[in-house]
Simulated assay, not measured.
Amino acid sequence: IIKRYEGGTYLDLFVIESQSYVDQSMVARVMEYESVARMRYIRQCFKKHVPMHTRLPMILTVVLYVGESKWNAAKRLS
């Protein structure tokens, strides 16, 4: 789920991911999702001739784990 809020010239993304099982690659997948979103934004800036010093969007990703066993995978990149 991606929810976009525009304020001035900034576009921020709030992503909610539902996860029903422990996935050891979750932290890497979140990084990939965020990287793809930023690259999409950069490509759109080039098409619209937006100055490249424009701030990149803030992306906040929340993973809601609803599985039964304890989450034992990484929670952040170290």
Rank of each mutant, 00 (worst) to 15 (best):
I1D: 07
I1T: 15
I2T: 10
I2W: 06
K3G: 06
K3A: 01
K3C: 02
R4F: 03
R4W: 00
Y5D: 08
E6N: 07
G8E: 01
G8K: 02
T9G: 08
L11H: 10
L11E: 10
D12Q: 00
F14N: 08
I16N: 15
E17N: 13
S18C: 04
Q19R: 11
S20E: 07
Y21I: 14
Q24L: 03
S25M: 07
M26F: 03
V27Q: 08
V27W: 01
A28T: 10
R29Y: 09
M31T: 14
M31E: 13
Y33N: 15
R40P: 01
I42M: 10
I42S: 04
R43E: 14
R43S: 13
Q44R: 14
F46W: 10
F46M: 12
H49I: 01
V50D: 04
V50G: 00
P51E: 07
T54P: 02
R55M: 06
R55H: 13
L56E: 07
P57T: 11
I59A: 02
V62S: 13
V63L: 07
V63A: 05
V63N: 10
L64D: 04
L64W: 05
V66Q: 14
G67P: 03
E68V: 08
S69N: 10
K70Q: 13
K70Y: 01
K70G: 06
W71A: 08
W71E: 07
N72K: 08
N72G: 00
A74Q: 10
K75R: 14
S78E: 11
